[in-house]
Amino acid sequence: MPADPIGAVKRELLVRQLDSWTPVALHRSRRATFAQAYTGPDGGTADAALRVFVEFADLLRGRRMTVLTIAGATDELAVRHTAVQSELPAEVTAHLMPGDLARLPVALKAGGAAGTPVLAYLDATGGPGPDRDTIAAVTNGRPAELLLALDPPGPSDPDLRRTLTEAGFPLVTEVDLVADAPAEPERADAPAEPERIVFATAAGKRLDAFKDALWAVDEYAGVRYRDPGDPDGHLLDISLTPHPGPLRRELLARLATAGRASVTELRQFTAERTVYRAADTNRVLGVLLAAGLVDRDPAAGRLSGDVTITAI
């Protein structure tokens, strides 16, 4: 298990998100911006993210990628940052700036990010989350997406979701990262406090890409997921075929409230309001139908988006 298992998962998740975002952004525009800001130490994530662009040298030809990195402690990071810069394609311009999340709006404006694709990763652990101005600055990207790491949360924060939605991110999903306890009971170090990851976007395909990345990270990292919407707080092993229990409960609760919903509506609910992928919805609905816990209309045929599911 890594010394900082939650940090390792966050790092891998960001790298995977960059791997999927970069080709899409550069296909859409000749310029794009990746911005990352850290309240505390980056734990090696900042230079791991920067190194992603080394692998896209061919795709970057004739295009420009600006990478903005903001961190409070920059001395050690500057050494690592400089080492990675020497490997970057000439089309990548990387800037390292001292500061915190509040400096992001100025950095994005100076970097000419407005109107171009923007992906922002903000690690606010150890401090307050981003304010409205910081979130609004990210939405000046066209299109924009935001990945947040936040301190141990209480219940799912409706204010954050509302703030993100009002800022221009209609699609928001959340997941808690929970480190496993040490295997040896005599070890003095306690598992790290849980952290919440929030992803916000305006594009359904990008939400799907995030969910794919979420379930593809290292299953042996010593971290499990917890669905903020699951009242039982069940911990889920990272797997390409996650345990369906919490999703069964959440879909049944949704149908108990709504009475009925189309498969399309339930897939959208799954993608936004649970840790699961939209595609997991059909798998779980099949189990619920077989168990006689829900009904469908029409009664036979493929479980397509316009099929209506009714609570029994």
Rank of each mutant, 00 (worst) to 15 (best):
T45G: 06
D159Q: 13
T82P: 03
V263S: 03
V92K: 02
L50S: 08
G7M: 01
R273Y: 14
A190P: 01
N140S: 08
I70N: 00
T139A: 14
R61H: 12
V263C: 06
G44D: 05
T281S: 09
A183Y: 09
Y121Q: 06
P191I: 00
P153L: 04
W21A: 13
R226D: 06
P244W: 09
A200D: 03
K205Y: 13
M65A: 12
P242W: 05
V172N: 01
H81P: 05
E195T: 05
F56A: 11
F199T: 04
R30A: 12
P298I: 09
T74F: 03
S304F: 04
G112P: 05
D47N: 08
E195I: 00
H243F: 13
P152A: 08
R283E: 14
R28M: 06
G40A: 13
T93L: 12
A216Q: 11
D47G: 01
V275C: 15
R30Q: 12
V54F: 08
L235D: 08
P130A: 04
D218W: 09
L255M: 06
T134N: 02
A278V: 02
A209H: 04
S304T: 15
I309Q: 01
A216P: 00
E87M: 14
I238N: 09
A300F: 11
A213I: 09
E91M: 06
F210N: 03
P130D: 04
D42H: 07
T134S: 04
R248A: 13
A113T: 03
A216K: 07
R267N: 05
A120K: 00
D306F: 10
V15N: 09
A209G: 11
E265T: 10
A137I: 02
L247D: 04
S20L: 15
A221P: 07
D212V: 12
L50M: 14
I70Y: 01
L50A: 11
